[in-house]
Design a protein around this nucleic acid. Structure first.
Lengths: 173, 173
DNA sequence: CCTATAATTGAGATTTTCATTCAAAAGAAA
DNA sequence: TTTCTTTTGAATGAAAATCTCAATTATAGG
């Protein structure tokens, strides 16, 4: 645990500004929750984050973590995502490019990907119907190459212009 | 309530075949639930369908409707969809082309649309990552032209090559 | 440094959805 | 009919999301 307290100045400022605008107060709990959220580059449920916070401050309760995540979402720092297991997860939103999720229904692995073509097509689609698009949400469900026991050759062969991607997690069920 | 009992022969046969294959029995409740489901071209939650069924047969319980919807899904007659409000809805699947949803966050209106380009792009994306795609799920959230008080001119002007579409519902919140 | 005011906190309870249990009822087959 | 198996539905359970309220804490103004 080295000293890295000032890594998230921007995000903290966004949060403070949001609190101010909404007439809310800055508290130690909210600071702690924000910090731990920012330090954790994973999809977190409110429950997940609660346990991480517990490790540092036993006195913080479920409710506060839950409410603070809602606040972070309002402030534009977090984004709610659902993967179909009934739970709501949160991921970083500020300074993180929009991306979609590809989910393996076997191992639960989640791949984040970004496709400008898909984005453009969705924007165009929204415009065609007169929708003012606020955001969209694409989940591709399937079986990943590991689980499908496909040759990884297929993967590398087809990956000429592979979009930006990050493999996030393989949840064990 | 005119006599239209034999409108869904194909679907009924699909269901009966599924029951047979799975070693399950045909019952009056399942027949009734299937019939009402087929007659209702809307997104229905288990609860919604339960109340529709109740109107015709007070003795049918939640559990049976819930389980029958699962059966219909297995049989390929229904599809589960989630719109992010925590509830699970079911829509017709048999003889209904795949489509995605555009949802108005103001009035809750749901537009079903189909875009071959989007489909193709998603398929390609799945292939690039070695995913064997089972299905995908795209929700575009925004504000519809009615709620955004935009000119409907925009809509009709831009609708030169408008994809197939069906406005399903405007749920009042 | 106080005090007053308003917001926050967190344990617990409630709500909502999804899923299971089990005894009674009903279908299927001989 | 008789026997065997599946279905049914009320009740219950489990899990997540949300709310309640009394006690606590932050903040601004004296």
């Amino acid at each position: 645990m080295a000293d890295r307290k000032n890594d998230f100045q921007k995000e903290e400022q966004v949060f403070l500004e949001h609190l101010q605008k909404a007439g809310l107060k800055r508290t130690a709990q909210r600071d702690l929750i924000l910090e731990i959220f920012l330090r954790t580059e994973e999809h977190l449920s409110s429950e997940d984050l609660y346990w991480l916070v517990q490790k540092q401050d036993q006195s913080v309760g479920h409710t506060t973590v839950y409410r603070t995540l809602k606040l972070l979402t309002e402030a534009g720092l977090a984004r709610e995502v659902r993967f179909g297991d009934g739970k709501t997860y949160y991921e970083h939103h500020y300074n993180h490019e929009h991306h979609d999720h590809m989910i393996c229904t076997e191992c639960g692995k989640v791949i984040e990907f970004f496709s400008p073509e898909l984005e453009a097509l969705q924007d165009a689609m929204a415009e065609k119907f007169g929708f003012k698009l606020t955001h969209h949400n694409l989940r591709i469900l399937g079986v990943c190459s590991d689980c499908g026991k496909m040759e990884s050759e297929l993967y590398s062969a087809a990956s000429g212009a592979l979009p930006r991607v990050r493999v996030v997690s393989g949840k064990t069920k």
